[in-house]
Amino acid sequence: MDLVENYREELRFARKPLGRSLLVLLLLALAVLPWWCPSGWLARASMVCLLAIGVIGQNLLIGYSGLISFGQAGFLAIGAYAFGHLRIAGVPFPVALLAAGVAAGLAGYLVGFPSLRLKGPYLAIATLGFGTATYQIFANVEWLSGGRAGLSIPPLQPPFGIARDTWVYLLYYVIFLVFTGAAYNLVSSYVGRALVAVRDSDIAAESMGVNLSRTKLLAFFISSFYTGVSGALMAQYLGHLEPQAFNISESMNFFVAVIVGGLASIEGSIFGAAFVVLVPALLGSLRWAVPVLFGTAILSVLIFEPLGLAGMWLKTRLYFRLWPFR
């Protein structure tokens, strides 16, 4: 039976045997996705993987730390362009990826400084300004954005003669797993606790020995690091960078994903990323309706299920915990 014998055991990831086995099955099924999913959907799966990393980053900021940012596209662009320039200069993929994350993270650290003074809507406005400014800079400074021709990124060379889209998916899937795992570990550690404490009551957090400035800046750093990595993966995925890809509507996409997926939930972030990628794909020729649908989704989530898709998932799990004895 399920018996916890010590504190360490209680802190294990996916502690219960049933959940653990189901999780392993799911991860395996997703690992062999290229061999069973219909063609055309594999690219979308890669897109979900790369976007999920960014949404997790956004959720760490909005959901866990309660710091609202509308400037995610800015961090995404910094990550993407840093990655693009490094790749063109011949830097290997993993190094460029981490460097892109660090570049965006440092930008986030700087943007975090206003957050020490601004709260709620005022912080949202400040970050919106950052997002817009970054977009304008990339749109107007030619040596950064590669001018009218844009920036072309050398494609990945798959080893062992694997098809390119399969290789991209597998690579993105592994990177996604690493970042998701790290996020789970962080939010269940003292870091996550401090973030949530600052969100729930900053005065109490401060009085209990949490350094507010350091915690908020850390939240911004981690969040934009994730977003930067997401941007880098997006750059590699698109193969071609234009500033238009990083305008305000991209920031809104992240926001929709976080709200619909579920605030302060890692699996919610993944659901949210899947939502903003797959729903437009399913709509097909009705694409024009996507913004309407996103707006409606946000409204209905806020009214009917404030915890979003993650909340629905949680309720389903709770329901089946006693199944069939109810």
Partner: peptide
């Protein structure tokens, strides 16, 4: 959270689920 200031903080270890401090 009251123990926060007594934690030996190492964010990389936290991300890799080293939980000695928590215990």
């Amino acid at each position: 959270l009251g123990r926060h200031l007594h934690f030996r903080k190492n964010i990389l270890a936290a991300a890799m689920r080293v939980r000695d401090e928590e215990v």
